[in-house]
Write a protein that binds this DNA or RNA. Sequence first.
DNA 1: CAACATATGGAGATCATCTCCACTTGTCAA
DNA 2: TTGACAAGTGGAGATGATCTCCATATGTTG
Lengths: 216, 216
Amino acid sequence: MTTDKPLRADAQRKREALLATAREVFDAGSFFDLRFDDFARLAGVGTGTLYRHFPTREALAEAVYHGEVATLCDRARRLQATLPAAEALAAFLRGMVDHMDAHQGLARTLATLMADRSSALAEGSRALEQAVTDLVAAAVQEGAVRDDVDAGAVMMALHGIGAAHDRPDWRAEADDVITLVLDGLRHPLHHRPVRPPFGNGGHRDVAPANSQGDLR
Amino acid sequence: MTTDKPLRADAQRKREALLATAREVFDAGSFFDLRFDDFARLAGVGTGTLYRHFPTREALAEAVYHGEVATLCDRARRLQATLPAAEALAAFLRGMVDHMDAHQGLARTLATLMADRSSALAEGSRALEQAVTDLVAAAVQEGAVRDDVDAGAVMMALHGIGAAHDRPDWRAEADDVITLVLDGLRHPLHHRPVRPPFGNGGHRDVAPANSQGDLR
DNA sequence: CAACATATGGAGATCATCTCCACTTGTCAA
DNA sequence: TTGACAAGTGGAGATGATCTCCATATGTTG
């Protein structure tokens, strides 16, 4: 993590090969149909080598994911530098959906791995989260966006989009989610026409002990 | 699926035992730490029997999930009968978060299994989706909610909440997502202050061929 | 209470995962 | 260059979870 021990030229090559193959296989969606050992074969390395570099499927996924995240973060930074904050945020979110759409297989695979109880990936996405948080914060400062909702909520919505691969109308719905989120992010209407009889209106000052959430 | 072949009394009992144990284990979050065979032991049945009833972990999860969904749908129906549509929708969504919160382990486990490429679960949730769709449709008819966004988007957001278990601030963020969605669902502001330079504003008349979504 | 269908359990076959180590390949100092 | 040491490799097999099979037990029906 901290120590970037200089990898031997040899090792570097193999590692790259593994990652390249992983990308392919992920995108083709066949990652889970493949014995991990066979995956090694496919990449042209021995089992031992595979395990040395990536002890688990998740470790492999994490590495691939890192690349993705880096790209995404780059884009966020670029947008933020070019556009008014609110537009940058919108552009980023819509661009993200475009990207997922273009690489369905990869997105699907990563989402699946992600859902497994490997918080490793969750950790990997901190950078992404930071980027989103920045975008939102800038938009808030600009006054275009409400300040009573956490950027984490936006991350959750993105999670949803990623996790809901395999919905037949994915693309349209994903776009709709972004629309809802962006519209919801504008300053809330001042007259609150819908006042839920349930829950606390959605904020921090959490519920009392009685609320244990069983449905009746 | 179609044929409800009358199960032998015997079998019924075992099946129930398995489901009951599954619920417990799911909620305790220890499902994945358990050998599937040992799970059979735990429920007091032989391996063969377990496999006869539920050929895979997913099949088991699906059965448990069915119960959950039934409860949820019930609640949706009840709310819809009692409250104005918009309130019913809000109450349902907030109640859902409460429920998930109260049964974290179960929600976590189901979400994980769900993410695996078993569309079986996705299929199981059709009923739930129908319930949400109904709630939204009623609210639209009542005029409280925009009609240009599909209920599927709301499902996606819910997915996100479910999938993003293990976020440290889960509860607050989940509430925020619901808030965003509910606010976003109100009629969109008529002057569109934020006009994304990217994407199509989020609707059906989809993007031209050039858009293949690679980030630049 | 036959006689038949249906269901059971668990011993072992099967198969993916991962370890281990004898061997190969790169690196660096002289 | 080359020798010597460290770093990396591959794949044969141990390991351990999953799932099948079937002799036996248990309901069910006329």
